[in-house]
């Protein structure tokens, strides 16, 4: 079987700082990582490959430096890596991104065999939209299975897949068909440590670098800023609250007294809570 997994290289948001004066993102020195949500999809893809035999192609769109993310994915054991990179992709919103990626996936399919499953993460940690996966599914006419917690069964002969899908307030059991697109829920598995062999292969293997033309994209008006229906008009820092928290003095007081003082302060500010807590709590 052939599995394509789309990943994204993102800045490690835990280390992002906004410049206090200019209110710009300070990217210098912020390490980039594979979007953490993508690792669950990558691991699931590798497990399926190991169980059913086949190949995993990892794909990303980004600047040339995104090759690092692909090398890491190869290190985990992916068989092939494709970097879709072209200045025409700059400024892509989710619609333009899903267009470019779907074209590239089609090209990957022509070149290396039609994928049975396309994986993405649930969302990215920098954009947080969760839209690119569904966008790819729609464009490639793949059955869409989002927030998948578990692949319960897969029958390659019957082209049938059963999954458990996270939904509001429960788990949906779905039966669907290949080819499909799966966005993998977080916490569903743990990314493997790549083997030494994989590490050696990763260092030696080539990352395929495709321009828009290489990916078979001839309509550049659907790419990048031009192909993006949404426009960012304004970027600004969140407003800060004028006053800081009123501190409850703790010097030379027993914890018990501090607690009583805090509760009094809570009920002074929100008197209605007194009744609510009394009747909900104390169980």
């Amino acid at each position: 079987m052939h599995i394509v997994i789309c990943i994204k290289q993102v800045p490690d948001s835990a280390q992002i700082r906004v410049h206090p004066v200019t209110n710009t993102i300070m990217r210098q020195g912020v390490p980039t990582i594979i979007n953490p949500y993508d690792l669950f999809a990558l691991e699931e893809a590798l497990r399926l490959r190991d169980a059913y035999d086949g190949e995993v192609t990892v794909l990303t769109m980004g600047p040339p430096m995104a090759e690092d993310a692909l090398r890491k994915a190869l290190g985990y054991g992916a068989d092939r890596a494709v970097l879709l990179t072209d200045r025409y992709f700059a400024g892509s919103d989710t619609l333009a991104t899903s267009y470019a990626l779907s074209q590239a996936i089609a090209k990957v399919g022509e070149t290396f065999g039609t994928p049975d499953i396309v994986f993405t993460g649930k969302q990215t940690i920098d954009g947080d939209t969760a839209q690119v996966g569904p966008g790819i599914a729609k464009r490639l006419d793949l059955l869409q299975l989002t927030y998948v917690a578990k692949i319960a069964s897969l029958d390659l002969d019957q082209r049938e897949i059963k999954v458990e899908r996270r939904s509001e307030g429960g788990t949906q059991m779905l039966k669907s068909r290949l080819p499909c697109l799966i966005t993998m829920l977080e916490g569903t598995n743990e990314i493997r440590r790549g083997s030494l062999v994989d590490a050696l292969c990763a260092a030696r293997s080539q990352v395929l670098k495709w321009s828009a033309a290489d990916a078979g994209i001839d309509d550049l008006t659907r790419c990048g800023l031009r192909g993006s229906p949404t426009v960012v008009k304004r970027v600004f820092a969140p407003a800060t609250r004028a006053e800081k928290a009123a501190q409850i003095d703790t010097t030379e007081k027993a914890l018990r007294d501090i607690a009583d003082e805090l509760i009094a302060a809570i009920f002074t500010r929100q008197p209605a809570l007194q009744h609510e807590l009394a009747f909900n709590g104390g169980a």
Partner: peptide
């Protein structure tokens, strides 16, 4: 955007 560090109007 960027985990809440900035806001953008789209």
């Amino acid at each position: 955007t960027f985990g809440g560090s900035l806001l953008c109007t789209i």
